[in-house]
Structure formats: C-alpha cells, structure tokens
Amino acid sequence: MTALVAGLTVLVLVMAVLVAGLLRSHASILRRLHTLDGGEQESSAVSAAPAIRTFPGVPQPLGDPVPGAPAHDLVGRGLTEESVVIRTTGVPHNTVIAFLTSGCSTCQNFWQAFADPVDIRLPGGTRLVIVTKGLDAESPSALLPLAPDWAEVVMSTKAWTDFRVPGSPYVVAVDGPSGRVKGEGTGMSWEQVARLLAQATGDLSYLSDTSGRSVKPVGDAERESRVDHDLLAAGIMPGDPSLYPGVEARS
C-alpha cells in the first residue's frame, strides 16, 4: 500500500512538472504572437535592442524617428547672435522644419531652392523654419551666405536631438494644434520632399504647379504631334497670324 501511495505521489509530481512546462511554453508562444501582431514590445532584457558603445567623444546613435511623435518647440540662436524661441506646438499654425547643414552636398539643393522662394509652396498658415546644428558644429559665417532672407534660420543642436534627426537634409512637418509630427522624411531636393509631405499630410498645397501638373494622355499627345507636323509641313510656324484669326479681326 505504501509503495502504491509513493508511486502515485511521484506520478502526480511528474505530471505537475509536465503541466507547468506546457503552460510556460504556451505563455511564451502567446507573448511572441502578441509581439508579431504589433503589440507592445517586451521590456525584458531579452527583447531589448543590443546596447551600442561608441568611442569616447563620439555621440550615441539616435533612435529611429517615430511618426506621430510629440513635436518640440525650437529654442536656439539666430545667425546674428540673437536668442530665439519658435513655437511649433500648441499653436494654430503648422510648421515645416528643414534640418540642414552648411556642408552636406545634398543640403545645397535645399539652400538653393530656398534662396528662390518662387518654387516653394506651403499650405496656408504653414511656416518654414530652417534648423542647423548649434555653434558646436556650425559656423554662422558659413551659414549667413546660404540663409534665405524670408525664412527663419535657427541654430540648435538640441532640436536635432529632440526630433531624432537621423541625418541631413531632413524635413519634419509639425501639426501645430496637436503638437505632433505628421510627416517627415528626406530627399535629394525640396521637390522630392514636397511630394513626401503631400503624401504624408494629404495636402497637395506642398506641390508646385509644375510638379502637380497632370500628365497628358498618350492619345492627346500623339494628336498634338501630328497636328504640329502637318502645320509645319504647310509652312505654318508657331505664332503664325493665321493661327489667331480672332486676334487679327479685333485689331
């Protein structure tokens, strides 16, 4: 009898261990499925990103930008030594922030585009602010010839950190009333970035007339080409008075 009880006890213990193991395995599977479904990341050391160590004096890499992340006001200095505070959050207007440097070659495309604001299209009530790094990494004398006279230029390394700017050029669109980032990205030119912003915000006002024009259907293009060919063959050049009979009659 005693042997039977002892045997049953051992059997129950073994079964309990097996059940506990199965439950633990099941919980682990559920956690992983939750993560795959886009659930919150585990905070355990196992799932955390590996720590990156840099040489002394080399800054730690920034985390990836987060769309919809809270934006930050811009605090820094201007190119002529003034202190500057520019609000981007909790305000009725929106702000497009262009993070540029004086040295990067791609940034030169942006500086040149901003120098001639004719092709810069912004939605109504949207302000463009150019943010460079602070005096620790930039020189006002190098920036002054580049800076447009119609847009604010702020030197602020903190803003680069606040917005987790991965490199330059980089453009961030901030929704003023909500105080959140509503679009961000980079490109080789302002035109490219304007398309990105238009897609991210759904606002076509970023697109200039030229970039926003519709493509002519193939049939229309062919017909136009054929008409041009026939007119040229008949000796009728562009601007020929016979093409504008109404104008001739009025004059």
Partner: peptide, 14 residues
Amino acid sequence: DLPAAWEGRLGVRR
C-alpha cells in the same frame, strides 16, 4: 519666461 504659444527673439541690432 514665455507663456505657452508665445515666441520671441532677443538680440542686438547689427
């Protein structure tokens, strides 16, 4: 101390 939604510039003329 600038209240919320207020911005400012503080400098010296050239």
